[in-house]
Design a protein around this nucleic acid. Structure first.
Lengths: 245, 245
DNA sequence: GCAAAAGTGTTGATTGTACACCCATGG
DNA sequence: CCATGGGTGTACAATCAACACTTTTGC
């Protein structure tokens, strides 16, 4: 039996997935489709974030973790609660009203928004019962509710955070090349980075560890693989209070 | 007539106030006191953040603004929504249960936490109907609910943010000295800063504008006063994507 | 004239930035 | 042998960090 839902409270999850091959930072969205029973007109046909009510007896973090697992099967992914969205009119779009009609939603629902970081390849979208699909973060489809705004704010938070904490490695496979990291930064930030300077900077970090391995199966010079050591990072870390205003 | 309250949803406000004279970063707290009607035992005697239910027809931001105004009379202060707190057991402390007993609180209440930045002197605590009182952020009294944690997380967010955005000036009067700014940074961050280096750095910013004025009424060499120009700051600002991991 | 805080310069180290070509590999 | 992306070095500029004494004022 399903636990009691808090009817005016939900979590929504912005699932970021990076695809090393296409160099694309993606967001995982689920299809929302409804047609009129009488006229067969399409009433709703767009995408939304995955989300669900919070249960009475779980924490907000647990709720987000549960929602991610339900959609992807994944647990133990990096997550961050980044903002609550609760405008009185956030569900008052016509499409959204139709959609919400037959659900146990309060019209005034507050959602606690999380984002997750993982690898696109870790999600099996082909056999997904919610018709989940990846979209490049800069080519989003039509979105329901206020999910466009939620994704934008998640992306902004990610931009800020990836400059300051080593969360970038949550989006990469365990073994990666220096250029993978650069490509990912460029995808997230929407900028170009000088390869020589970036490379030097990264290789000098003690927690970026070169492996005795190179890429395989590429039709060009195979690149050196590296790993990120969270342990070394934590040991070496000391906050620097650089005032940068 | 009071608008409808959302019974399981509140905002809590961490009001930071800086006192230039005592060089103290303070938090504004309100007294919580209750004694037994029969035995006269003191049942609850501590402090809490100011907060209140969200109304049905207002945004979260409006709710926080209203709560601040109710306590301090102030509007138009810098505010930031920084986290939602909603653990199922966050009101389950014995004192808190007693306190909540006669209020229209749901036991499972989610609170959206904001912090505000202002000047201690702008609040008239002597004539405050909630018995509001300032406490140095590093010498907090016993606190109800999970408000200790909320304040700590607000402080952490403030530490991070003041390094990157010019919010420090929200805590200072319009006219300030360079040493005021340094003292404030030291209070927030809990570090010591080299005066010569700091001074040079700040004076070189185009948006720190020297005034034709010096301190008055000080029994020592009066210091040069400066102001912060938000306009110039905005014009000059361009995001730098310095990767600092 | 004294107490108290304001204000001032230099140097070396570190870090950032701009920039163009050769190399190794698979096919 | 060629196409592709991997990998490399130098020089200049900017910023940071360490460090101690003189100046100005009110009293």
């Amino acid at each position: 039996m399903e636990p009691n839902k808090i009817l005016n409270l939900s979590v929504d999850c912005v699932v970021f997935g990076y695809d090393t091959n296409t160099k694309s930072l993606n967001v995982l969205l689920i299809k929302r489709y409804l047609e009129s029973e009488t006229t067969k007109d399409v009433l709703v046909n767009d995408y939304v974030l995955t989300g669900y009510h919070v249960y009475e007896d779980e924490t907000l973090d647990e709720s987000a973790t549960r929602v991610l697992k339900e959609l992807t099967g994944l647990t133990n992914q990096y997550k961050k609660q980044f903002k609550a969205f609760g405008n009185p009119d956030r569900l008052s779009n016509k499409k959204d009203l139709i959609w919400v009609q037959n659900q146990e939603f309060n019209l005034r629902t507050i959602t606690i928004a999380y984002y997750f970081l993982l690898k696109t390849e870790d999600v099996d979208v082909d056999n997904n019962k919610y018709e989940a699909k990846w979209f490049p973060v800069r080519e989003l489809p039509e979105l329901g509710f206020d999910h466009q705004q939620i994704i934008e704010e998640a992306h902004e938070d990610l931009k800020t955070k990836c400059l300051v904490e080593p969360i970038i490695f949550e989006l990469l496979p365990d073994k990666f090349t220096i250029n993978d990291v650069q490509d990912l930064y460029e995808s997230i930030l929407g900028i170009e980075i000088d390869n020589r300077n970036f490379r030097r900077k990264l290789i000098n970090k003690k927690y970026i560890i070169p492996l005795d391995e190179k890429q395989v199966g590429v039709s060009k010079k195979p690149a050196q693989l590296y790993m990120f050591s969270k342990d070394i990072y934590k040991k070496m870390y000391h906050k620097n209070y650089l005032i940068n205003i």
